[in-house]
């Protein structure tokens, strides 16, 4: 499945690229998992999530599990399309003939 190359300035900054790349391989990921992988504070990660959620790239759910409030994050179809397009754009930079 090849996507149309579309460089995405919202995704490209290193932290957001890492967040979206993690989410792209999963159906959903717990807030704490992303925070620990990226060594971010809760507030710094929340800020990044708010930006991505505002763009419609991720959705945030808060299910109640084992009497604890969990925060699950998933990539929306819009976010996945943007990520796939961004990856295609990066590949196009490396190999313009390959697109």
């Amino acid at each position: 499945m090849s996507s149309q190359p579309q460089f995405d300035e919202l995704i490209h900054p290193a932290t957001r690229l890492s967040i979206v790349a993690l989410l792209a391989s999963a159906d959903w990921i717990d807030f704490a998992f992303v925070r620990d992988r990226l060594n971010l504070s809760d507030s710094a990660l929340s800020k990044q999530f708010a930006t991505l959620e505002g763009a419609g790239y991720i959705s945030i759910e808060r299910p109640l599990e084992d009497r604890r409030r969990r925060v699950r994050v998933r990539l929306t179809p819009v976010g996945r399309k943007a990520f796939d397009g961004h990856v295609a754009a990066l590949r196009a930079v490396i190999d313009p003939a390959g697109t």
Partner: peptide
Amino acid sequence: MTDEISEAEARLALKVIADRE
């Protein structure tokens, strides 16, 4: 838009993506 990033930067970004995967 992709003209704004170099090949090295694109490689680095793709490596970040692969590492996270």
